[in-house]
Design a protein around this nucleic acid. Structure first.
Lengths: 330, 330
DNA sequence: TATGAAAACGTCCAAGTTTGTCGCTTTGGT
DNA sequence: ACCAAAGCGACAAACTTGGACGTTTTCATA
């Protein structure tokens, strides 16, 4: 029984395919976990485990301290088993994420989606796919593809606080190689941007991940500019949607069309919104919200379905825009 | 060694907490898997396994065929271990899904997000959170909460093709109990809708999941109306965003502002889009897209940043709307 | 309420497995 | 070329496993 636990812990110590761990390293780690075992035992156990098709582990046969790893492309085994509920939720999440995340990011979770598939199939619940639909809220734009090896380096650099060397091709320019000092990742518009400084300059740049041609981890530690905080950097409007009045909260009064009432009742703008009837076809909406560019987009997207009443500033903003739009189409 | 595999398969047979499996059932299933074991052995094994903190399984002590289950609230164990890459991707997915999925749906995956957390913590990579940001594309509306027990019944009913009895409270109406014949789930606007018929009527209804007060599985099998296909039902515009001309593909010509060029280059509208310069501040975009309501939203949301040139029909549609909008604000 | 089938659980013991030890071979670095 | 470290085969002692059997408990049916 004790050995069962040891087997388990051993299997946990072994990393997935690109990485590996040597037999003596496993021994040391097991001893740290208070298993009083011999190297010979560890060797024997590994051979035994790898013989079973349940545990697809293998070693590098030609090196002398043998290095062990899990053979790739297998979806993870898991205890307790994934429930059908979880499997369904995974598939739903996959549907949601599909138009949002670039393929190389999504593919990191492919094993889990496969596991969910298997689970639903073995339960004879295959037909669920025909029973689920998504009505997208956004126009599905094509997410830009990111070179998987670049993504791996960027992930590792951010996690380990290390810089990396990379070739970046700005639009309409020749590719150039820089040493990147990564500060953070920002997702926007189905694209991923690296916020970083370059070489030893101090100005913060935004680099689209899909424009990197290659990347290689360096040994230099990341240096964070004084007072740099990613969320502040975003809030300052560095991602081309400046937050108008520094996150000012406003009391919004909108005259909304009939059909919008339903939507707003179900997914309110804020917890304390109020809706009252104006006439047969219009309702008055009151809500406290933060005056962001996203709010403007949202209001615009309903066209004549929303009329901004207050604050007056915002009404004038939209009135001006309506006038400009009308003139544009003359 | 053979017994290790048996332990593993035994653990796989045990379901999570609300469900359970009796010792004789486990015996039968193991025998089907060609394990020639005695009931006594199974009993002993289960006691042994449950004694280890690694396998939080327990039994119902007062029933006579003892029923075994995994004690809840533990995040799943998995082999091979979740890599840091996967863990990071899970956390990113969580950030994305947070404003999209209702809490009760998201909570089904909580174990995996916790696992990802643990993994990142034990790797001393805790600071990644400060290094990732999301610039939301949409106004974050509050997703409507769904009663977890209702969600469970709806999931089960859909998977097992069974009807259920439920109390539904339509807006401004008294709650009523119906027998629901579920046909499919549709996600729209951060809300989830059940497409279903009621009792033995044949008209297809849409029922918001968050308006169900309770639900209980019934034994009656679902009957699908003739020719009902969920995706067709959605495409027919039953979710209040009718697809204008039956998924007609149009060749779009837009005059777009400078800043939109960047966005469109990175996340194109379609694979064959063309962008050419008109003047210092404007570009011509050509793309073949499907003429959906989402496209209209998208165009509207950029205000004066987009002028529709072709097709003429669409231009006139927006010209008319601009005029109406301008008049509205006079 | 009696009866019987089924499951849980204790104990014994033989068969089988595990594991430390030792010795030999192979490998890689200095 | 040498040495340290790891792989590998063999062996025997120690330990674990698992079937057999008996007793007790529970639940369903007569």
């Amino acid at each position: 029984m004790d050995s069962l636990l040891r087997y388990f812990d051993m299997l946990c110590l072994i990393p997935k395919a690109p990485n590996s761990i040597s037999t003596p390293e496993i021994l040391k780690k097991l001893q740290n976990m208070c298993y009083a075992v011999d190297l010979r035992t560890v060797q024997r156990d590994l051979v035994k485990l790898s013989a079973s098709p349940l545990f697809p582990i293998a070693n590098t046969e030609n090196t002398k301290p043998l290095r062990w790893f899990w053979i790739d492309n297998s979806s993870p085994m898991q205890l307790p088993m994934m429930s059908t509920d979880e499997a369904l939720t995974f598939k739903l999440a996959e549907m949601f994420l599909e138009p949002l995340l670039p393929p190389s990011v999504r593919s990191r979770l492919a094993g889990y989606f496969d596991l969910a598939d298997k689970r639903l199939k073995e339960s004879k619940f295959e037909h669920w796919v025909e029973k689920v639909g998504v009505v997208p809220k956004n126009l599905p734009l094509l997410p830009a593809e990111i070179e998987p090896s670049v993504l791996a380096v960027v992930y590792e650099a951010l996690l380990k606080n290390r810089r990396f060397k990379a070739t970046y091709q700005a639009i309409y320019k020749q590719p150039k190689t820089y040493e990147i000092n990564p500060l953070g990742l920002v997702f926007r518009h189905n694209s991923i941007y690296l916020v970083a400084t370059i070489f030893d300059y101090t100005d913060v740049k935004q680099l689209a991940l899909h424009r990197f041609k290659d990347a290689e981890l360096s040994d230099r530690i990341v240096s964070v500019p004084k007072n740099f905080v990613l969320n502040d950097y975003i809030a300052q409007g560095n991602f081309d949607y400046p937050v108008d009045n520094h996150l000012q909260e406003i009391t919004l009064k909108l005259k909304v069309a009939d059909f919008l009432k339903q939507i707003l009742l179900e997914t309110p703008l804020c917890t304390n919104q109020r809706i009252s009837q104006i006439d047969d076809e219009h309702y008055l909406l009151k809500a406290c919200v933060i005056n962001t560019e996203q709010l403007h987009w949202w209001i615009r997207s309903f066209g004549t379905g929303i009329e901004v009443l207050e604050p007056l500033e915002l009404r004038e903003f939209f009135a001006f825009e309506a006038k400009a739009l009308n003139e544009m189409y003359q």
